[in-house]
Design a binder for these strands. Structure first.
Length: 703
RNA sequence: GGCUACGUAGCUCAGUUGGUUAGAGCGCGGCACUCAUAAUGCCGAUGUCGCUAGUUCGAAUCUAGCCGUAGCCA
């Protein structure tokens, strides 16, 4: 059996073995709605394949290694193991609540991954694809560790912009090496980095050029991605540095004590490890899952990786090469998607559009976002935009106004007039068949990942169903004597059309589909069930399957996202797949490096004043905010401070503290904040407001 | 800076190999209906297809340059 070409219509009746993955989220921060584009896109595809009756597994894991995690754990005073365990729980809860249905969620810091990474390394090494070479790298003499480029800051050698990372300048866009940086400083300790030598291991990617060129042309890549790869081939494939020196949180390389696998080596291997863990679990054994059948060199199973466009290089070059070199099968296809913008702009913390998964869930139904993303997603690598106005309009119009409304406007008659019983035949079987015929195009669209097309097709049919009900006007028939049978027929027809629509939407809206199944009193729908109508069957009383999105909910979510920002927490944006971003370090300087030098005039612009906390109160509806009335000795200010978890309002009243008195007022959901009190600490319960020494009086300037 | 993409109605997007008057949903204007979560149906208005030049009988579609946006540069 040969795997069908990816993107080919799902015409094959044979049961396919399919393994699907999403990129591994990095275990140093929370999931946000940008991440969710990928997990929702993948989950829809996995659910679709399962509904079609295929043997489909969807696995993922936390990407748990690397310098940022090591330093963040150290900054929190806990072990990396404790950190990644905590983050894993948060990630799993977020995914579960968004109904991302992983068959297994594992970690790259696992026995299975150590085994697979070691095996892949050793097999490649034994074939001569790994070489050792001494390189020069920046070294932090205080922390006694080598520094990744992103952990060195200094002035751009080209434009002189201060506070730039060691690899490129965000001001002028120049690329350079950390050694070129002027006045370089270690982000971890603030020390001046030294250049030191160290022996590193390199994966000889160029050995695989013929195989990779072949694989690239094999139809497993989107055209846009293949174009990008050609560019890399033309530039020549370079060796890949796969080792890092201690201290490092990862797997020690067996034959090189003190050296560790680079996080990006074992990250994709996490896909294998997660699947291996699934195979060896009770569930996996019961299902007869065989690791080798999926990963062996001649596997007939299909293997798909959904990833973001930023990590194509790793998945389309290193990963297939590593697998090939270690005598494993290569992926059937890589599906890259674009990034998410909100209202046409990059997600922004200050605009409140940097929305964490949890913040969204606190205010809105996950089905809304799943639907909206589906309505926008296609198979290309183009970015997609979350337009908040469009989001509300679309969810309300399409899902509540069109689809759910079909059931809502027919079910009442069935319950009241026919004891919930559907008619035993359809008055218009032709219309039903017209719908089921449309199901083929919808399936093809799903298979090709053209979700936006599938949604368009489904909504066109939903319009058709509403037209039918309008034409038949059951509310008129209901008032006519002796027309009971006709009324029951119309409603049965309408509910059957509704059932088809819900069945087709099930990969996108698993929760709503489940509620609809309960309403219809039917077992879990599969694609095959949709060919025949539901007749002579008793249904439950209709309850709203989905409520409308209210603008206030969206506003509240944005406000809450701004609150997250105000509380000085240590939350960091996580890069997918273990990019080495500074996330913490030894002590507070590492977590939050000292900012670039300013002159005295700049400092003098900040007017700091002693203030007496005249009143302090909790803010209804905000879990982090306290409303403070600050007495400046003649003038009072209303200030919101994100310190509710650290202080009891009663303990604050009467205290003296320090505030920024000339900060521009800021409008918040709860009122206008006219300044800011100063506090130190990572956030949550660990926040400490400043107090002046005895003798200070309200209104005194701090200088 | 180099490369790869993207740029179509107020908004979000379709537009298959170049071929008549460029489409949909939302929003907007009007009418109808009242079963339904102010839901539904019918009718209508709305565009120099980023800009410029070229190829062609003919360009939203092909080519080049420019402008804007995103990502990558291991």
């Amino acid at each position: 059996m040969t795997a069908p070409k990816p993107g080919s219509p799902a015409t094959t009746a044979a049961r396919r073995d399919i393994l699907i993955t999403s990129a591994l989220p990095y275990a140093n921060g929370p999931i946000h709605i940008g991440h969710l584009v990928e997990y929702i896109q993948t989950d829809i595809w996995a659910r679709f394949q399962k509904l079609r009756g295929h043997n489909c597994c969807y696995v993922c894991a936390d990407d748990a290694h690397g310098t940022p995690i090591m330093l963040k754990a150290r900054a929190e005073g806990i072990t990396p193991e404790a950190l990644i365990a905590r983050v894993a729980e948060e990630h799993k809860a977020d995914f579960a609540d968004f109904r991302v249905g992983f068959d297994n969620y594992h970690s790259t810091h696992s026995d299975e991954n150590r085994y697979c990474a070691t095996l892949i390394y050793e097999r490649n090494r034994d074939k001569g694809h790994v070489t050792a070479r001494t390189i020069e790298q920046a070294y932090d003499p205080v922390e006694q560790m080598f520094l990744p480029d992103r952990f060195i800051k200094g002035e751009c050698p080209k434009c002189g912009a201060p506070d730039q990372y060691g690899d490129n300048c965000e001001v002028c866009g120049a690329s350079y090496s950390p050694a070129e940086l002027k006045n370089p400083r270690s982000v971890v300790s603030g020390a001046v980095p030294e250049q030191r030598e160290s022996e590193h291991l390199f994966f000889r990617l160029a050995d695989f050029e013929p195989m990779l060129r072949d694989w690239t042309r094999g139809g497993g890549l989107q055209e846009q991605v293949a174009n990008k790869l050609d560019e890399w081939f033309d530039a020549g494939l370079k060796e890949w540095d796969i080792s890092r020196d201690a201290p490092y949180f990862g797997f020690e390389i067996p034959d090189h004590p003190g050296k560790f696998f680079y996080v990006w080596l074992d990250a994709p291997i996490g896909y294998m490890a997660s699947f291996k863990h699934l195979c060896e679990s009770e569930r996996g054994r019961a299902a007869g899952l065989d690791f080798d059948a999926f990963w062996g060199k001649d596997s007939a199973a299909e293997l798909y990786h959904f990833i973001g466009k930023d990590i194509i290089y790793f998945h389309a070059l290193f990963w297939p090469a590593m697998l090939y070199g270690a005598d494993f099968r290569t992926p059937t296809a890589i599906f890259a998607h674009g990034f998410l913008t909100v209202d046409g702009q990059k997600m922004s913390k200050s605009r409140g559009t940097f929305i964490k998964a949890r913040t969204y869930l606190d205010h809105l139904n996950p089905e809304y976002l799943r639907y909206y993303f589906a309505a926008k997603l296609g198979p290309s690598v183009d970015d997609i935009d979350l337009s908040l106005d469009d989001f509300q309009a679309r969810v309300n119009a399409d899902l509540v106004g069109k689809v759910v409304n079909i059931a809502s406007r027919t079910a009442g008659f069935v319950t009241k007039r026919f004891d919930g019983r559907l008619a035993s035949s359809l008055p218009e079987p032709g219309l039903f068949e017209e719908f089921t015929a449309g199901g083929q195009a919808i399936a093809d669209a799903y298979e090709r990942r053209e979700y936006s097309r599938a949604v368009r097709e489904i909504m066109a049919l939903a319009d058709r169903a509403n037209q039918y009900i309008d034409e038949q006007a059951p509310w008129v028939v209901a008032k006519q004597e002796g027309q009971e049978e006709r009324l029951q027929g119309i409603c049965t027809q309408g509910l059957n059309l509704f059932r088809l629509l819900i069945g087709w939407l099930k990969p996108i809206l698993p929760g709503t589909a489940e509620a609809a199944e309960q309403f219809l009193k039917i077992p879990s729908l599969t694609w095959a069930d949709l060919s025949a109508p539901l007749l002579g069957h008793e249904i439950a009383k209709f309850k709203p399957l989905m409520t409308r999105v209210e603008p206030q909910q969206v506003q509240a979510m944005l406000e809450a996202s701004k609150e997250d920002l105000m509380a000085p927490t240590s939350a960091q944006q996580s890069g997918q797949g273990g990019s080495e971003q500074p996330a913490g370090g030894a002590g507070h300087l590492a977590r939050d490096p000292i900012a670039g030098t300013i002159d005295f005039d700049t400092f003098a612009k900040v007017d700091l004043r002693i203030a007496r906390i005249a009143k302090a109160a909790r803010v209804e509806g905000a879990d982090k905010l306290l409303q403070l009335t600050l007495d400046l000795g003649g003038e009072t200010r209303n200030v919101f401070a994100g310190i509710s978890k650290a202080y009891d309002p009663a303990d604050l009243e009467g205290r003296l503290t320090v505030m920024v008195a000339n900060l521009a007022p800021r409008k918040m959901r709860f009122g206008v904040s006219e300044g800011m009190v100063l506090a130190a600490g990572p956030g949550g319960k660990d926040l400490f407001i400043l107090s002046p020494d005895t003798g200070a009086e309200p209104g005194m300037k701090v200088k």
